[in-house]
Amino acid sequence: MSQQKIDYEKLTTGYEFEPSGFSIDNVAATKYLDAVDGSKGIYGKNNTVPPMAIAALAMTAMAEGLSMPPGAIHVSQDIQFLNPVIINENLTSYARVNRVVKRGKIHMLNIGVNVVNERNISVLAGETSFILPVSQ
């Protein structure tokens, strides 16, 4: 999932990150559910992936394309679970800068994420907002 990092101060509204492909196998799903103390039965029954695991990987993929300072604060997160995802299904995550606001020493960034399956059907959508310090 590695890609070229862009400095957050160079981002403009409409900037599109490189799409990132990933899939979640049984091992990764179990690892995720163990980490979050999540219940396994509901997913095992239908061989589906925890939707928050998809959100987590999509956010990480987006963050891999972005160079942010240590003072970055994650202020909000919107997520929509649109369709179930089966274990090992190939997914592609797209991320786009929705808004950039610079006010004084504060820099606000809102990024939209859309994850689609192999049939190009959206399975998860989200928006994430960060507040970052503006460099002097």
């Binding site: 980490a35 979050v36 103390d37 999540g38 219940s39 509901i42 997913y43 589906t48 925890p50 939707p51 928050m52 959100a55 987590a56 956010m59 994650h74 909000s76 997160q77 919107d78 997520i79 929509q80 679970f81 649109l82 369709n83 179930p84």
Partner: peptide, 28 residues
């Protein structure tokens, strides 16, 4: 933040099951 949000999603899963994981949305 996404770890704590995962706990929140687990709360919704425990209360609302598949209706939550199949078509839930959150604004946190």
């Amino acid at each position: 933040g996404m770890l704590i949000l995962a706990y929140l999603s687990e709360f919704m899963t425990e209360n609302f099951g598949e209706n939550w994981i199949n078509n839930g949305s959150l604004s946190a």
